[in-house]
């Protein structure tokens, strides 16, 4: 198994922690993991992304240009990474605020009204968990229970009261994928 993913969105949407949760969970399943953020000023307020690789074998390059899966959380990320999906790869995006959807026909496109769902659940911060849930439904590379355990690692202890909500969001994301 080798899954090369890029997660992209606005800073503050939780794209970096999505990748981290995948990595933590991957370690629990004895997988090799690599997480490479875009860093510096562009992280703050601008766009942020992270390349996340989960593999059964030693990972070579943490920097890659083509991905098995792109998870895009806003229009600029849709624009920037549509062409970075490998043929037959997965393009998963939050369509709530996207006016120009992807048009490629050689990839599998999944759109989610994730931001709207997060609003319905009264916490916009769980957008990333809805997206992650959807991703895991499409590409079940890691067990949900390990994702929840990984979440515990990423979430500072003072937020652990939010774990049930996050779990709910993961499951909501899974439901939304058809």
């Amino acid at each position: 198994m080798l899954e090369e993913i890029i997660i992209a969105g606005f800073g503050g949407q939780g794209v970096l922690s999505m990748g981290q949760i995948l990595c933590y969970s991957g370690i629990m399943e004895n997988k090799e993991v690599s997480w490479m953020p875009s860093y510096g000023p562009e992280m703050r307020g601008g766009t942020a992304n992270c390349i996340t690789i989960i593999s059964d074998e030693k990972i070579s390059s943490p920097i890659i240009a083509k991905f098995d899966t792109v998870i895009a959380l806003n229009q600029p990320s849709v624009d920037k990474f549509e062409n970075a999906v490998k043929p037959n790869g997965v393009f998963l995006y939050d369509s709530t605020n996207v006016i120009k959807p992807p048009t490629r026909t050689d990839i599998k496109i999944y759109k989610l009204e994730a931001s709207n769902e997060a609003l319905k659940m009264k916490n916009t911060k769980i957008l990333n968990m809805i997206m992650l849930g959807a991703f895991l439904k499409i590409r079940p590379i890691i067990k949900l229970e390990n994702i929840i355990a990984g979440l515990k690692k990423v979430l500072p202890e003072r937020y652990h009261n939010l774990l049930p909500l996050n779990e709910q969001a993961l499951k909501k994301g899974m439901e939304l994928v058809n």
Partner: peptide
């Protein structure tokens, strides 16, 4: 380098 400084691995 900056990539190895900023990236995460096991």
């Amino acid at each position: 380098d900056g990539v190895l400084g900023q990236m995460m691995e096991k």
